[in-house]
Simulated assay, not measured.
Amino acid sequence: MGVVVFTNGCFDIIHPGHIDLLNRAKQLGTKLLVGINSDSSVRRIKGEPRPFLSQDDRAEILRNLKAVDEVQIFDETTPEKLIKQIKPDVLVKGGDWKTTQIIGADFVRGYGGKVISIPLKIGYSSSGIVEKIKSLSINSTETSFTEVGSSKLIEKSLNSHIEVVQKLIKKEQQRIERCGEFIIDTLERGNKILICGNGGSAADAQHIAAEFVGRYETERRALPAIALTTDTSALTALTNDYNFEHVFSRQIEALGKEGDLLIAISTSGNSANVLSAVMSARNIGCKTLAMTGSNGKKLASLCDISLMIPSERTARIQEGHITVAHIWCEIIDSKFEVT
């Protein structure tokens, strides 16, 4: 039957780095099967206006590459379901993914398959190409802070905040609603919410958990939520005895159970300990919700659902996170209000 190799990605704006990865992946077996995210899946991971090329166009390009034997489109956020159907002998991702972060790795290793992270061809990335194109356009108020003077700075900062909120109103209302429903479904099934993040995102984790356990504005029953950022003894012991990358994942192994929901907060989408927390949550059957920014595709692609604030500035992303979190709290108050 030969050796089946599987890899996956969005493959939106295919470049020489993709070609190199696919060629080297094919060398690991006799058949290379590529899974690509559907258009709706790409939008969930990367936000509007992605993808630039439709799923059919992306699949057609890949099918015409010498290294690729078969292309399958999947609509889920992750290729986990497809991997379990295919049962590849070798599971491959690019070198920007650690083997511990690769979806399906434990499943493939479980029947003796191999999981390999292939170093990337230096100098190529779809995100880099997009950023280069964007840099040729006129800067928005969100990114233009070159003028001097406190009054101008204040005005620009407030306007950039308003711009992000307007984008949320225009394009993200359905996503905000779906995430809120995800949280409510978890609570109605009698499960709990776990929340993690670093720095300002750690503060947001505590803030959100406090609103759930207490109340937002309306009297209702207490709701189970735990911020994994508050127990200083656990945080320091886990960092000292293991390493900081496992500071949240170890707590999830201890406190989480199947059906719980992890809200994973990272403005960049690249925080190693948050990514590790998501993988641990998935392993025990928890649902996962990402809160990140417009460049947080790595975190978003690992989670069941995501909120991606349409900004690249940390401050604006954090403001967007807590604004949306308050909206979720308002929705939850309404749902569980004491009558």
Rank of each mutant, 00 (worst) to 15 (best):
L235I: 08
L235N: 05
L235V: 07
T236C: 12
T236H: 07
T236M: 07
A237V: 06
A237R: 00
L238Q: 11
L238D: 02
L238I: 14
N240F: 05
N240G: 03
D241W: 10
D241K: 04
D241I: 03
Y242F: 15
Y242G: 09
Y242K: 10
Y242N: 11
N243D: 14
N243K: 15
F244L: 04
F244T: 13
F244Y: 14
E245K: 11
H246F: 14
H246Q: 13
H246A: 10
V247T: 02
V247C: 02
F248L: 07
R250L: 04
R250M: 12
R250S: 15
R250W: 14
Q251D: 06
Q251Y: 15
I252W: 05
I252Q: 07
E253C: 08
E253G: 14
E253A: 12
A254R: 09
A254G: 11
L255V: 06
G256S: 10
G256T: 00
G256A: 11
K257C: 08
K257H: 05
K257D: 09
K257A: 06
K257N: 15
E258P: 02
E258W: 06
G259D: 01
G259S: 09
G259T: 11
G259N: 05
G259M: 02
G259P: 04
D260R: 07
D260I: 01
D260V: 10
D260L: 06
L261I: 01
L261W: 07
L261D: 01
L262K: 13
L262A: 05
I263W: 13
I263D: 11
I263F: 14
I263T: 10
I263K: 15
A264Q: 00
A264D: 06
A264R: 06
I265A: 12
I265H: 02
I265N: 01
I265E: 04
S266E: 09
S266Q: 03
T267V: 13
T267S: 13
S268Q: 14
S268F: 12
G269P: 10
N270P: 15
N270A: 14
N270G: 07
S271P: 10
S271R: 05
S271E: 00
A272G: 14
A272Y: 02
A272F: 13
A272H: 05
A272E: 09
A272R: 13
A272K: 03
N273E: 03
N273T: 09
N273D: 00
V274S: 01
V274K: 01
V274N: 04
L275Q: 04
L275N: 08
L275E: 01
L275W: 10
L275I: 03
L275Y: 04
S276F: 13
S276E: 13
S276L: 12
A277Y: 04
A277I: 05
A277T: 00
A277D: 01
V278W: 02
V278M: 03
V278S: 00
V278I: 06
M279T: 03
